[in-house]
Amino acid sequence: MKHQVVRHALQSGAFFLALGLLWEGSVRVFEIRSYLLPPLSAIVRELVSSRALLFRHLFITLEEVLLGFVLAVLGGALMAVAVFFIPIAKRTIYPLLIGLQSIPKVGLAPLIVVWFGYGVTSKVVMSFLFAFFPIVISALGGLAGTPSHLVEHFRALGAPPWITFWKLRVPSALPSFVDGCKVAMPLAVIGAVVGEFVGSNEGLGNLILLSTSSSRGSLTFAALAAVTALSLGLFAIVAGLGKWVWWRAQ
């Protein structure tokens, strides 16, 4: 058993090592210009030498993403509860939401920057917009998917509506809600980076844009690596917190 785990890890490791060597080798053999594709070693060197610069921009993007995501989680949960329990909201706000969701948010980005400025706010809004919808849909699905036999059971126990909500609907919606948060987390990062592309002075998206236009290929790739690491790290945190919700209502 343990032997097999080690063997599988070695297989993965060997694969990625080979991929890295192939990259490094091809770039050198075919003499690809570094603003097109820098060798892997140059990117690693850049990550080390420009770490202060990368961290400064990473923290800006992190701030935007966290604010956008947290607002989306809170807003999404509240919106789902409102749409679920208030019949008029289901007929008015819900179709509006679906309509808004159908607008390509990338296309909205220039407007958002005009409305909310070059600073952090417009990126928080972008991040929020990307993350909000999957959270609302998953929370709504979770609330509506509460098993009907359990709802009847709570009725038989004479449970008042708020008890049914807190002790039954919320816990039974949580697994789906957590799934929605996991989907939304990388989307929140994309939203912030798109916002930075469209108009910003700082952040990893801004760094990617500037380094590309100044032909600093290795810095572009280093910034990309930083965005990827940020996205993966945040996803791991959300997934880790989500482990607390281990059950599935059947």
Binding site: H149, E152, H153, L157, G158, I163, K167, L168, W247, Q250
Partner: peptide, 29 residues
């Protein structure tokens, strides 16, 4: 009514509560 107990064919237990907590739900409500 609160003084009536109903048991259905499918055990209506909450998957996120252990046996003790599921039993307690009867009076918690």
């Amino acid at each position: 009514r609160q003084d009536v107990g109903v048991v259905f064919q499918t055990a209506n237990l909450l998957p996120w509560r252990n046996v003790a907590a599921n039993l307690a739900l009867g009076v918690e409500i």
